[in-house]
Design a protein around this nucleic acid. Structure first.
Lengths: 222, 222
DNA sequence: GTCTATATCGGGATAGAC
DNA sequence: GTCTATCCCGATATAGAC
């Protein structure tokens, strides 16, 4: 088939290719997060992405290569909110904002959270270097900020690592264990009311742990 | 070793069978928790359990049947500590004990925690009924106890479900995300010192959230 | 870039001897 | 209860035409 538009064929093809790749990555995230690396088949991913199995393997040389590509993309989203936690803000505001950002991510990108969880639970065979490098460095930076706050008496003394882990654990729980939360309560973060209650409860818990009285609620964006 | 005693052959054989089954279940837990249902092969499980693949399939009719058996066993261990949380105790003592029990489980049975996590993250396809039945009922019972405490003014007002989820999330985090905790801190719950610090931090955080401790976490009152 | 056809293989499960 | 041999299917990946 020839190019039927006046768009230069080369450019056109490349743009389609990018869209195709993105669709494949999306489909991969869907299925890998639900079924695991070995539970998801290339065939099923291809079908969801709207192309054939062989065609998918034209874009990614192998299933594992696709999996790694999906995972890399997830990790980027992952590190994002923590980057934003900065020393300049008031501690209570910074922590509140961070909790809301993490829970928003759990609501809007639960599959990314789950895939990340699957990978870590299984020992992070592929992610280990990323965790020991960039993640560790980032956590140390932020831990230093928190320690600075407590040294200045702006928050109570608390192990910064444990604080960060606790926030991660609680906020990601609502994405990773959504099936359990739903089974027990019948609710999910997609319910706006429930979402706000979870945000408030988590903020109260963490701020109380830091010895900060829970002040006025943070502004709801939107 | 052969049966050279006067033990009746039938009884003896049955006892061996039970031991075999247990060995298979152990091996299954090892591999399923590390590789997932589809990632672990019957062959590998059999090898770890010290028998042949076909022989394993004499004890369990199929891979999935074995997987379910492993999962059921995990669930029993799972529900155990929550059962122990009772209304009679002082709230602070009950919560402290529960947190310690859960973290002890995370230390001593991390694979069980991880397998459970894998299953829930993937939507709990097999466990759903158990979650909506027994687990939900148990949580409701315990939530009622907690609500009773806050109604009586013995703890601050706090959503009981969120409290339970938070405790689960934090305590299981140290088993399920052990790879990440290790990558960031270089420590694990197997380190007795680290274990005690995690117990103390978690207890302080949760108790503060319940209003059972005022101000920053400071073990020395004064 | 996309298709059809096919090579190849691992792994779950069964048959039947002992 | 345990073994050897085998069947069979699904799934990854490749070859080659268009």
């Amino acid at each position: 088939m020839v190019a039927t538009t006046d768009t230069p064929p080369a450019r056109r093809r490349r743009k389609d290719g990018e869209a195709r790749r993105a669709a494949i990555l999306d489909a991969g995230l869907d299925l890998f997060s639900a079924l695991g690396l070995h539970g998801a088949s290339v065939d099923a991913i291809a079908e969801r992405a709207g192309l054939s199995k062989t065609n998918l393997l034209y874009y990614f040389p192998s299933k594992e290569a696709l999996y790694v590509a999906v995972l890399r993309r997830v990790l980027d989203v992952w590190l994002d909110p923590l980057q934003a936690l900065d020393a300049g803000s008031e501690p209570a505001d910074a922590v509140r904002a961070y909790i809301r950002a993490k829970l928003t991510l759990s609501r809007d990108a639960p599959q990314a959270s789950r895939l990340f969880c699957l990978e870590i639970v299984q020992g992070a065979p592929l992610l280990r270097p990323e965790l020991e490098g960039p993640l560790r460095a980032l956590v140390e930076t932020k831990a230093a900020i928190i320690r600075g706050w407590s040294d200045a008496g702006r928050i109570g003394a608390h192990d910064p690592h444990h604080l960060i882990f606790s926030i991660w654990a609680i906020t990601q729980h609502y994405a990773d264990f959504a099936a359990q939360v739903d089974a027990v309560t019948g609710l999910s973060l997609d319910d706006p009311d429930f979402f706000e209650r979870v945000v408030a409860s988590t903020q109260e818990l963490i701020l109380a742990g830091l010895g900060l009285r829970s002040g006025p609620a943070d502004p709801v964006p939107g």
